[in-house]
Design a protein around this nucleic acid. Sequence first.
DNA 1: GCTAAACCTTCCCATGATGGGAAGGTCAAG
DNA 2: CTTGACCTTCCCATCATGGGAAGGTTTAGC
Lengths: 145, 145
Amino acid sequence: MNISRAAELSGVSAKMIRHYESAGLIPAAGRTAAGYRVYAMDDVHRLAFIRRARAVGFGTADIRQLLSLWQNRQRPARDVKRLAVEHLQQLQARIADLEAIADTLSHLIGHCQGDERPDCPILDSLAADSPAPAATSTKRSKKAK
Amino acid sequence: MNISRAAELSGVSAKMIRHYESAGLIPAAGRTAAGYRVYAMDDVHRLAFIRRARAVGFGTADIRQLLSLWQNRQRPARDVKRLAVEHLQQLQARIADLEAIADTLSHLIGHCQGDERPDCPILDSLAADSPAPAATSTKRSKKAK
DNA sequence: GCTAAACCTTCCCATGATGGGAAGGTCAAG
DNA sequence: CTTGACCTTCCCATCATGGGAAGGTTTAGC
């Protein structure tokens, strides 16, 4: 089958199929005499695997490992789990960061009347809150006017 | 003062100061005869404002608007609040997405023993879960072998 | 057999914020 | 005058995805 059919069956766009090939996530596809890529169901399965891994947030490097673990029937489930747990922790860290930001913003919004008047605690806070993070001064910096 | 001093005082790296200039968030700095950028405290304040806005997740476009609202003493606080609320909603949407992913992953991890044996529900799930999203078939696709 | 549509190919560009690093000019202290 | 700490611009990379151009191929319809 050609690339658009493989895209249709796997749920991965033709554009991304080529991308995954160049990134080495899938083996280089066979070609027709005219240079068209040719796919079999095996490839479609692999692509769908990648799509699902992406859907739970795994990045290229993680997926590369997952694919190799998937291929290797001998691998211990522990390896897979470790990868997944690490990824989950990163996800949770990102969520915590975003929540902290959302809380801050939410707090600011709560203090803003949001009416016709120009008084706005949100802008005030952005304009003059924390001084400046750890000033890593450089050599000549004292002299700088 | 020169760019590295402005960076030190504002907490924005010299690299990013140049970037913000080219992005139009700050006016083009004045130059010495030799072409060095020259800054005053006004610029430092503006940069610090940008830094704090970035810290609560605002993107370039939002910051551009915030800066113009900040400059304009006549603006109604409502405009600022609206921008902030929209941004907060986007943040919350992203958080919800990540949480859904984290939940899915967490669920999979919970079902994986993670021992020496090769059985792994995580890989199984990636290998054969949802079929493929809405196949948008193209014209000739039926014929594709 | 010719034409036009629907494919395919590769290559470049853009996103968004940030940093790394190279090549080359400038300034101040010794 | 040398040296080191600056400054400048320009290119590249991240990460995954898509847009689009230029140009070749295949197939349906006549």
